[in-house]
Design a binder for these strands. Structure first.
Length: 814
DNA sequence: CATGGTGGCATTTTT
DNA sequence: TGCCACCATG
């Protein structure tokens, strides 16, 4: 009776938007089962929805929002929905757009990190940052850490950088500020880590920069330490919804708790079986804490699965039921049992990949679309073999995760210039670009600049002015910066980027190289410029274009955009491609056909978790997530040997021969059906290859591996794999485009200046503001304080200035 | 003092 | 595979 749900073609991004209609009332509940309706109709107060895989979680979430707006008359801008990835946020946004049309305007839907960023863009000044701070990525962060380690004279053989970066990360996940970290140091090492942490934060502050963790930590700090700010957000956000609640860590939990506390209208959705971000500090205990912190929480369980066949669900259950720490539950389906699970063992990872590629071709010729198929794996390293095989078989695919467009060196370099232009204290950007391309400023010169920067406590860029006195190369660089700075004030973004590429010699030098990759790098820069052009906005200050551009880029994650794709597809709307991604990225998605590969001990479960029971449980959940992505057909594959670096084989006994994953064994039995080599070569998925076949494969010509290789055209590589095609401009653009809300309104919450005393502090002469009826203007004077404050504003479209009572003028920062 | 080439080495998962 | 450290050269 809910058949329509289980037959969704590709739930993640097509799916339910089709159901949109305007007469909301009963449509909202139609097609929902009992517990789903219960969740959607829940009144005020806290509610925890335990939603198993494929039980219609997103559907409940979106219908709940629609219910709040359509039935209960809640204003859209009173609702705040948080997700983990931009992709999930975008998905929710588009479904709501389908359900509610323009009634959805004003909703705040965003990831935790963009929410933090948005709050800090208005409030970072409370913490001593400028509101124009930059966001440091991992590389920048490592650069700062390196500096700290040098400064503190730490032996980096004994204490490697990664250790510090992990420690700091852990602290931030748990909202441990530098002072507490220092106080609680219990060993030489942790004391050292705390010192590094403290100095690291100082340097970030000096550079007016925040790392990813800071976006949350500092947001929470602002809310905790500045009651006015907290008050403002509490007054604005009446209903809060959280997706993937099992993956929240402590800071994130503090964040939503702070916001939701007074009204307690908190709606969280999660599944303890799908908690796979323990390494990031996520803790299932948040689910337990939740019921403690929010007494009288209503709990709703969704156990009916609309996605998979019962065979697939059984297999998934066989894997997950072995976990000790989980709430007992079992998914069920009203659907059929479907086909058996198909298994394959390849001799090595190439053969495994070849199999997958050829199997995909078969599936496609029997009527499946490429886009219905996903290949999932534990580690990004596994993509190499897969990609090669897919290219050779001419199967169009997209890889999610891994290297992003914005991670490419040339792109980062040019972005480095942009960063430096809008934020002169961005020392990491300075170091990145000061000698890129090489212009005679080496280690010594940079050392001198760093020295000067320390001595007079000014940013590197300023320090460089002093150094320029006696260093011609530095002087030339400074002149370049001035020239670019001038250009930045005059040119639109796209043009500016091209200008930078030219004037820094970056482009010309690339063009002069004979390196075959140079051409594609030039193209990447052209794309960057084109992208900049599409981000230009009318009537906005040039600099804010640059800043927004940089913000969006720093929050665009690997899940949001394919890192690589191939296959000549027409530039149609939805290119038909197979999806490749890690198990982590696959969470929340579904596909009619799923290949789950590398089912080997040491890979899934990953060897880093083998000796840790808690880690093993998480690996098990990961496997569970993988299996439950499949709707109709599931393949489990592995290989017998795998060309990995020594570490991976450390647990394998006989020189790298790999052992089948314990999770695969749990699935074993009637449900499995061997396909491919297994039947022809005596190899079995669960056992491996018979010994005799491949001990020396130069010898035996007519059986086993070599013949298989010949048959597959293995030995001679038909043609070299084509270089990865670049991601299309359209895709990048569409990823960057979505703002926090459905409508393209200013980032500032509507009532920012309505009654909030804290906001008044931001108004002073020269600040640009927007008035709902008078439009854009600039503040000339602020008089009085509190509720009697008045503001004099000169609006662009009026000759005379206007004097407005602050309390009533619904001003918004421009 | 800066640069470019070479060889060694490390690779979980991500906002 | 891609990045970093080191070394020889200009």
């Amino acid at each position: 009776m809910f058949g329509d749900q289980s037959s969704l073609p590709l739930g993640n991004n097509s799916g339910e938007s089709a159901e949109c209609s305007s007469g909301m009332a009963h449509d909202l509940l139609a097609g929902l089962n009992e517990p789903q309706q219960q969740a959607v109709q829940h009144g005020d107060g806290p509610i925890l929805v335990l939603a198993g895989a494929g039980s219609g979680k997103t559907r409940v979430l979106t219908h709940r929002v629609a219910q709040l707006i359509g039935e209960l008359g809640v204003r859209a801008d009173r609702i705040f929905a948080v997700t983990f990835t931009n992709k999930a946020a975008e998905e929710m946004r588009s479904r709501l757009k389908g359900l509610l049309a323009e009634a959805a305007d004003g909703l705040w839907i965003s990831t935790f990190h963009s929410a933090g960023l948005r709050i800090l863009r208005h409030n970072a000044h409370h913490l001593g940052y400028s509101n124009q701070f930059v966001v440091y990525d991992e590389q920048d962060t490592k650069g700062v850490l390196k500096q700290v380690i040098q400064e503190l004279n730490i032996n980096d053989d004994r204490y490697p950088l990664d250790g510090f970066s992990r420690a700091i990360d852990r602290w931030k996940n748990n909202y441990v500020l530098t002072a507490e970290a220092g106080k609680n140091a219990f060993s030489v090492e942790s004391d050292l880590q705390a010192q590094v942490y403290a100095r690291y934060q100082q340097l970030l502050l000096a550079a007016n920069a925040m790392d990813f963790g800071d976006l949350l930590v500092n947001a929470v700090r602002v809310l905790r330490e500045f009651p006015d700010v907290l008050e403002y957000y509490r007054r604005t956000l009446h209903y809060i919804l959280v997706d993937e609640f099992q993956d929240t860590n402590k800071v994130q939990y503090m964040f939503i708790r702070l916001l939701a506390e007074p009204r307690r209208n908190l709606f969280v959705v999660g599944d303890d079986d799908q908690s796979i971000y323990g390494f990031r500090g996520a803790t299932v205990s948040n689910i337990l804490e939740f019921e403690k912190d929010f007494p009288n929480t209503q709990v709703v369980k969704l156990e009916q699965n609309y996605r998979s066949t019962s065979t697939i669900l059984d297999a998934a259950h066989a894997v997950i039921e072995k976990n000790k720490s989980r709430k007992a539950k079992k998914l069920w389906t009203a659907g059929d049992s479907g086909e058996k699970i198909r298994t394959f063992i390849g001799y090595d990872e190439n053969m495994e990949a070849e199999f997958i590629a050829s199997e995909i071709k078969k599936l496609v010729s029997s009527g499946h679309k490429h886009s219905e198929i996903a290949v999932l794996y534990r580690t990004n390293a596994q993509t190499r073999a897969l990609e090669e095989s897919l290219v050779r078989a001419k199967v169009p695919y997209k890889i999610y995760g891994g290297l992003k467009f914005f991670d490419r060196k040339e792109v980062k370099d040019i972005l480095g210039y942009l960063r430096l232009l809008v934020n002169p204290s961005d020392n990491q950007a300075f170091q990145r670009v000061v000698n890129t391309p090489p212009r005679g400023i080496g280690a010594q010169a940079i050392l001198a600049i760093a020295e000067e920067s320390r001595r007079s406590s000014v940013p590197f860029l300023h320090a460089a002015v002093a150094v320029a006195e006696e260093n011609k190369s530095v002087k030339k660089f400074m002149e370049l910066v001035v020239e670019l700075k001038t250009a930045a004030a005059q040119m639109p973004l796209g043009q500016l980027i091209s200008f930078i590429v030219e004037r820094t010699e970056y482009g010309p030098r690339l063009a002069a190289m004979k390196d075959p990759t140079a051409q594609s790098r030039i193209e990447n820069l052209q794309e960057l410029s084109a992208l900049g052009r599409t981000m230009e906005r009318e009537g906005v200050e040039r600099e804010s274009d640059i800043k927004d551009f940089l913000d969006r880029i720093s929050l665009t994650s690997s899940a949001d955009m394919p890192a690589a794709e191939s296959g000549a597809q027409t530039p149609a709307e939805k290119p038909d491609t197979v999806s490749l991604m890690t198990l982590h990225l696959a969470k929340g998605l579904e596909f009619p056909v799923v290949f789950l590969c590398g089912l080997e001990e040491g890979l899934l479960p990953h060897y880093r978790s083998l000796d840790d029971p808690i880690g093993l449980e998480e690996e098990r959940r990961l496997c569970y997530v993988g299996i439950t992505r499949a709707m109709r057909i599931l393949y489990l594959t592995r290989s017998y040997y795998r060309g990995m670096f020594a570490s991976g084989g450390s647990m394998g006994s006989s020189g790298g021969a790999r052992v089948v994953s314990r999770f695969a064994k749990d699935v074993a039995g009637e449900r499995l059906m061997a396909v491919g080599t297994e039947r022809s070569q005596g190899a079995t998925f669960l056992e491996g290859y018979p010994r005799f076949s491949f001990e020396d494969d130069d010898g035996g010509n007519d059986e086993g591996l070599s013949s298989w290789k010949r048959k597959q055209g293995f030995a001679r590589r038909a043609e070299p794999p084509e270089p990865r095609a670049n991601v299309s401009l359209d895709q990048i653009r569409s990823m960057l485009a979505p703002a926090d809300t459905i409508s393209k309104k200013p980032e500032t919450p509507k009532e920012y200046f309505e009654k909030d005393p804290a906001a008044l502090e931001q108004l002073s002469a020269g600040v640009r503001v927007i008035h709902p009826t008078f439009g854009n203007g600039v503040v000339e004077e602020v008089t009085g304080s509190g509720t009697s404050a008045t503001v004099v504003i000169k609006f662009d479209s009026f000759e005379e200035q206007k004097k407005l009572v602050y309390r009533f003028a619904k001003l918004v920062l421009a």
